[in-house]
Design a protein around this nucleic acid. Sequence first.
DNA 1: ATACAAAGGAAACATTTGTTACCTTTGTTT
DNA 2: AAACAAAGGTAACAAATGTTTCCTTTGTAT
Lengths: 191, 191
Amino acid sequence: MNGKQRMVEQSKQWLCDALINLMTKENFQDISITEIAQTAELSRKTFYHSFKNKEAVINYLCDQLFDQYFEQLLQQKPQVGEMMLKTTFDIFLNFWWQKRDLIQLLIRQGLFDHMNEIWQQKAIPRYQQFAAPWHVQGTPTQVNYVMAFQLGGFTNILRVWLGQDQPEPPEQIKDLMLLAAQQLADSLNTN
Amino acid sequence: MNGKQRMVEQSKQWLCDALINLMTKENFQDISITEIAQTAELSRKTFYHSFKNKEAVINYLCDQLFDQYFEQLLQQKPQVGEMMLKTTFDIFLNFWWQKRDLIQLLIRQGLFDHMNEIWQQKAIPRYQQFAAPWHVQGTPTQVNYVMAFQLGGFTNILRVWLGQDQPEPPEQIKDLMLLAAQQLADSLNTN
DNA sequence: ATACAAAGGAAACATTTGTTACCTTTGTTT
DNA sequence: AAACAAAGGTAACAAATGTTTCCTTTGTAT
């Protein structure tokens, strides 16, 4: 990354930070571009040079979050076989526990689904080149749906978990998630 | 419902229809309130009387969809025990298959998560007074997470399914969903 | 070192948004 | 039937949005 690009990225980051900062005090809807630019000590022109609108800032933020998550997942690459689901849960829960302040802010501002949209769009292609718990056998279509189901389940647990004012520590949620998966499995076995 | 209320509901419905109509031709972001009002042959004043903004129209629409779904679910109330999960899948898939044109429109316009948000918020309290497949034993917290997981899974399958130009017929998806649940169950049993 | 391209600032601009004031129409109540 | 309240229409309004013009600054390339 050269100096020019770094300059742009820096501006984007400042605008992001400004928006997050404002969101702790004010409703997302009521925050104006002028306000964001002023807080970031940049001109409105620079805002519109960096982003299309307010939502695009959230997109950028979520993109970054997602990339961080995937980086961490690749480092601690869960091994296929036993414990894989548990390890994946662990990485998932610990990552989002670290980011809980930001996520709670997004949830309170009604922007969680915005994140979810980006998450789902980026996750599906990425997981296709990666051994995930749902990567068992099956046609590509089957894998896709199995993945969608589990990914949706994970994300929604995240929503419920961090949507609370005082979320439980990640270890407790891990047990609850295992129970959730187990109960689903049981409801199949009664047929 | 008296005539006055009916009048308001009628206006809301016309505005809804107008927005849906415009969304088939134009990007949601680019549709102005003026345009919606003109298409509905009502004044901007009436729009602002009925809704806070464009998003509120989508909320209203999604509220209606949700209520319709739940009505159908209560009519065909799946019985606890065997086949419950399958019956629930059936109702779910057939309902959304009927509504696929609208859902596909929402997905293409990036409004699926908007629907998801409303869905999740309304579903969790409702399902608490209703025997659902995840209503097995456990503390309220446990039931809540089990429910969140499955609900998120269902919704995300819906996204992937109807996000396609030519979605498979519901029967095929039902098999895929059962497979998804089964594979999750299997990945637990290998531990 | 100079020329060049990309980024930022200032300010003006048309549009859109959300709100308001005033008036007319319509359904409800007594 | 008369009075009233709620809804719709017209038109004006301030504020915010998104775009443009012109100019300055700052890295990059030759």
